[in-house]
Computed example of a mutant assay.
Amino acid sequence: MTRYVGSCFFTVFVLLLWCVGDIADACKCSPPHPQQAFCDAEIVIRAKVVGKKVVSNAIKYDIQQIKMFKGPDRVIHTIFTSSSSASCGVTLELTKEYLFTGRMNTDGRMRIVMCDFIQYWEDLNGTQKKSLTQRYRSGCDCTIIRCSSLPCPVSAPDECLWTDWLLADGQSGPQAKYSACLKRSDGSCAWYRGMAPSKK
């Protein structure tokens, strides 16, 4: 009996260690501003998820591409992601339309991770959708600096402080939803919301 109980305790101990290790290896990343995500991505598309299949240690999502905002001159039919959330795998809903930002693997496949900007298309507002076609691209020479606690110094004129995080709004804040960081005529960068950047 003692031997059986000891075996049970050992099994529970091993399971606890496995769980702690899994938590320690969990995916960690800071949600990007939509513009920064656009600029950093190799591919940005609007697509509908139409199928799902587990392939080895990955998940292959079949998609119907609706619009390519950035990427290769061809239609993307599949997106791959890790099957584990600890490895930054993404879970998508079938029949839903998304905006995807991601990268191209060396084998030519599009890959997404949890740290990419992935949103339901219907959840994006009009400003964000319009910015995908021009404003975000034109602001890729600027750098968006996340500001989550004061003070947040700007170290270069081509930087914009993303202060939505001061109120814990993050990607739901006004700068993320309605603003773009663009270069002004003097070479510095500034936020603007639906109008040309100031010359001051």
Rank of each mutant, 00 (worst) to 15 (best):
H77D: 12
I45S: 05
R103P: 05
Q175L: 05
G21N: 13
S7A: 15
S30W: 03
T11D: 13
P34Y: 06
I144S: 00
V5A: 13
A26Y: 12
Y61E: 06
I45P: 05
C19A: 12
A180W: 10
D62A: 11
S188M: 04
R103C: 00
A180Q: 12
G170D: 02
K130E: 15
C29G: 12
V50S: 15
K67N: 13
F13T: 15
F80M: 12
A86V: 02
R184V: 01
Q119T: 14
A176Q: 07
F100E: 06
K200H: 10
A176D: 03
S188Q: 02
P32A: 10
W165C: 01
V75P: 01
C160I: 04
V44N: 08
T101A: 06
K129I: 15
I63Q: 04
D169N: 10
Q35I: 08
G173Q: 00
F38I: 05
T81L: 09
G6Y: 08
P153N: 00
L17P: 01
C19M: 10
V55H: 13
R109N: 15
M104A: 01
Q36G: 01
K130A: 15
G102T: 03
C39S: 07
H33E: 07
R184M: 10
G102A: 01
C39E: 02
Q134E: 11
G173C: 08
P31D: 04
Q134W: 15
L15Q: 14
A58C: 10
P31S: 08
Q64G: 03
E122L: 12
V113E: 14
Y192N: 04
K28C: 01
G126P: 10
A190Y: 02
G170R: 09
V113M: 11
D62P: 08
Y192F: 06
R146H: 08
T95L: 03
S198P: 14
S82P: 04
D25N: 14
V50F: 12
Q36V: 03
I79C: 11
C140G: 05
F117W: 02
S84Q: 08
C19L: 13
F10V: 14
D169V: 06
F38K: 07
I79R: 03
P197L: 03
F10C: 14
S56C: 05
G102V: 06
F117V: 00
G187L: 00
D73K: 02
P151H: 05
T101K: 06
N105E: 13
Q128L: 06
R74H: 09
R193Q: 13
M68Q: 11
E93A: 04
F13W: 15
I118F: 09
T91G: 04
G126H: 14
G108F: 01
C88G: 03
R135A: 14
E159D: 00
S149G: 02
R3H: 11
C152Q: 04
G102I: 07
A24G: 06
A24F: 09
R193V: 11
F69M: 04
S148W: 09
I63W: 08
M1F: 10
G51I: 09
A176H: 09
W18Q: 12
Q171T: 07
R111A: 09
Y4M: 13
D169Y: 07
I63A: 12
T78P: 01
F117N: 04
R103F: 01
D40P: 02
A47F: 07
